[in-house]
Write a protein that binds this DNA or RNA. Structure first.
Length: 429
RNA sequence: GGGGAGAUACUCAAGCGGCCAACGAGGACAGACUGUAAAUCUGUUGGUGUACACCUUCACAGGUUCGAAUCCUGUUCUCCCCA
C-alpha cells in the first residue's frame, strides 16, 4: 500500500520545510530523491536515523530513494552547524567508512523492485573533475554574493567567535550543489532531502540546476531533533550512539531508547517507528494512562533495536535489562548457565579477575579497581562513601570483603555503581 | 612582512609571587525523591594513603626566587588588525 509521502511526514513531525511545488511534483508519480551521508565515521549514528527513516517513508510511498555517500564531500567537511574547521580524512579511511555505511543502509531500504533503493558515491564523479574545469563550469554559475548569503557561511565569518573559514569549506556548498546537479542530470533526481541545516546547501543545488540548464528541482528538509533538556540528540555521556554493534552494543542501543524522556518519547516514536498513525496514537494514549510503565519507550526501543540489530539481539537486550533492572533478584541470574550469561552481558561492561585471589577474600575497593571497573583507588573510595556500590545487586559498605562464595556459578561477579552502571567480572579465563 | 591578544582541569572561565590541586558556571557521576523519566535538593569531580600528609599538574623547555599557574628568556601553536 502506498502512502502519501508529504502527508506522512507532516503528521509525524518530520517536515520542516519544502520548496513550493514539491508536493505536487511527488503526487504526479514515481519520483527520485536523494539524501547525502557524510562518511566521517565507519558507522552511522542515530543522528542519521532521521534521514534514513525519511528515505524509508519515501520508498514506502512508491518513490525511489537514493542514498549518496559523500566520499568527495567528506574530504572537505560541511561547515553547516560547525564552529570550527574540520579535520580532513584520508582517502583510505573514507573508503572504509563508505563501505561500512553502505552495509548499514541496506538494512533499512529495499534494493528490490521497480523503486529499489540506489546508493551512489559522489567521489565517483568528482575524482576526475579537474579544478580548472570545476571553476569554469560550476564556479562561473554562482556568485560569491550568493554563497556569502548562506547562514552556514555568515555564521562563520561574522559569528561571535570569529573563527574564520577556509576557502575549502567555503567551497563546500558548490560541491554539494554540483552533486544535485549531477544526479538531476544523469539519474533524473528531482528532489534532495536533508536536515534543516542543509537547506542552504540544497538550494545551492537547485539554483545550479536552474542556472546551468534552466531545470527545476526541489528541496525538502526535516527538522533537527531536539531533546527537551536542550542537549544534542544521539549523544550520551559515553559518546555517540552508533548503529554498528561493535561501537554501541545492542544492549546499550536498546537502553538508549528506553531512557528517552517522557517529553521526547512521543516525538521519537512518530519519527523512528514505521507503525501506522492509529497504532502510534493508541500507544501514546496508553502511555498517558500510566507514564510510569513507559510503554511508549518500550515500544520505541523494541522496534528500533529490532530493525537495526535483529530479533535475537533485541531479545538479549531485553533479557539483560530485565535482570539488571527488573525486580527479579540475583537468583534469576544464578539460574542461568554461563553461556547465556555471557551472551546477555555482551555489551555490558566486562572485566576479569583471578579467582585464586578471592579465596582469602579481597576488600571491595580492591576488587573494583583490579577488575577494571573503577580507574583509581581514590575513585573507588569515593564511590563507596557515596554508598553507590553493589555486589550482585546488594549494596555493600567500604569494609566489606569479596569471597569465592560470592561468585555466581562459581565464576561471575556482578558489580554495580549507581543504578545504571553494571559490570560483569569473570574470574576464569 | 609589521602590530596586538592569547594558551589554566571534560568545556567555558577566574587567578597575575606564598592562604592554589587551583574561585565560579556548565557538564558528568553518585545519594534522596521516583518510573532505569523530568524537575528539585545534597554530595563528589588529579594520583597514592584510613587520616593531619605526600606526589604529579596551569602549552613546551629553561631561568630568577627560600617559594612560581603567577616574574624573565626561548620555542610551539591559536586568534585579531594592517600590508
Amino acid at each position: 500500500m502506498k502512502t502519501n509521502f508529504v502527508e506522512e511526514l507532516k503528521w509525524r513531525g518530520m517536515l520542516h520545510d519544502a520548496m513550493p511545488g514539491t508536493e505536487e511534483q511527488l503526487n504526479q508519480g514515481m519520483c527520485k530523491a536523494y539524501i547525502g551521508f557524510d562518511p566521517t565515521a565507519d558507522s552511522l549514528g542515530v543522528g542519521n536515523l532521521v534521514q534514513i527513516m525519511t528515505l524509508m517513508h519515501f520508498q514506502k510511498a512508491g518513490h525511489q530513494p537514493y542514498a549518496l555517500i559523500g566520499g568527495a564531500t567528506g574530504m572537505i567537511g560541511d561547515p553547516s552547524g560547525k564552529s570550527q574547521e574540520r579535520n580532513l580524512l584520508s582517502e583510505d579511511i573514507l573508503r572504509h567508512n563508505q563501505d561500512c555505511q553502505k552495509r548499514q543502509l541496506e538494512k533499512f531500504l529495499s534494493f528490490e523492485g521497480e523503486n529499489k533503493a540506489v546508493i551512489v558515491n559522489n567521489y565517483d564523479w568528482f575524482k576526475d573533475f579537474g579544478f580548472l574545469d570545476f571553476i569554469r563550469d560550476v564556479g562561473k554559475r554562482i556568485t560569491v554574493n550568493y554563497m556569502m548569503s548562506k547562514d552556514s557561511v555568515k555564521n562563520r565569518i561574522s559569528g561571535g567567535n570569529h573563527e574564520g573559514m577556509s576557502f575549502t569549506e567555503f567551497t563546500y556548498q558548490l560541491i554539494q550543489g554540483y552533486d544535485f546537479y549531477y544526479l538531476w542530470k544523469h539519474h533524473g533526481i528531482q528532489l534532495q532531502m536533508g536536515g534543516s541545516d542543509q537547506w542552504g546547501n540544497i538550494t545551492t543545488g537547485t539554483e545550479l540546476i536552474r542556472r546551468i540548464e534552466g531545470g527545476e528541482a526541489f528541496a525538502l528538509t526535516t527538522p533537527l531533533i531536539k531533546k527537551s533538556d536542550g542537549t544534542k540528540f544521539g549523544k550520551t555521556e559515553g559518546g555517540n550512539i552508533w548503529l554498528d554493534p561493535k561501537r554501541t552494543s545492542p544492549y546499550k542501543f536498546y537502553q538508549f531508547w528506553l531512557n528517552a524522556a517522557d517529553a521526547d518519547a512521543p516525538g521519537y516514536l512518530k519519527i523512528f517507528s514505521m507503525k501506522t498513525r492509529e497504532e502510534i496514537e493508541s500507544i501514546m494514549a496508553e502511555h498517558e494512562q500510566d507514564p510510569g510503565r513507559r510503554v511508549l519507550q518500550k515500544a520505541l526501543a523494541e522496534e528500533v533495536t529490532e530493525r537495526v540489530h535483529g530479533k535475537e539481539a533485541l531479545e538479549q537486550a531485553i533479557n539483560a535489562s530485565q535482570i539488571l533492572f527488573g525486580n527479579a533478584d540475583i537468583q534469576a541470574m544464578r539460574a542461568l548457565d554461563n553461556l547465556t550469561i555471557q551472551e546477555i552481558f555482551e555489551g555490558v561492561g566486562q572485566g576479569k579477575l583471578d579467582s585464586q585471589e578471592l579465596t582469602e577474600g579481597m576488600p571491595i575497593a580492591q576488587v573494583l579497581v583490579k577488575s577494571g571497573f573503577i580507574a583509581s583507588n581514590n575513585e573507588a573510595r569515593r564511590a563507596l562513601q557515596e554508598n553507590s556500590i553493589s555486589v550482585n545487586k546488594q549494596k555493600v559498605g567500604a569494609e566489606s570483603m569479596v569471597q569465592t562464595a560470592d561468585l555466581l556459578n562459581e565464576r561471575y561477579l556482578l558489580l554495580q555503581r549507581g543504578k545504571k552502571n553494571y559490570y560483569l567480572v569473570d574470574t576464569q579465563s
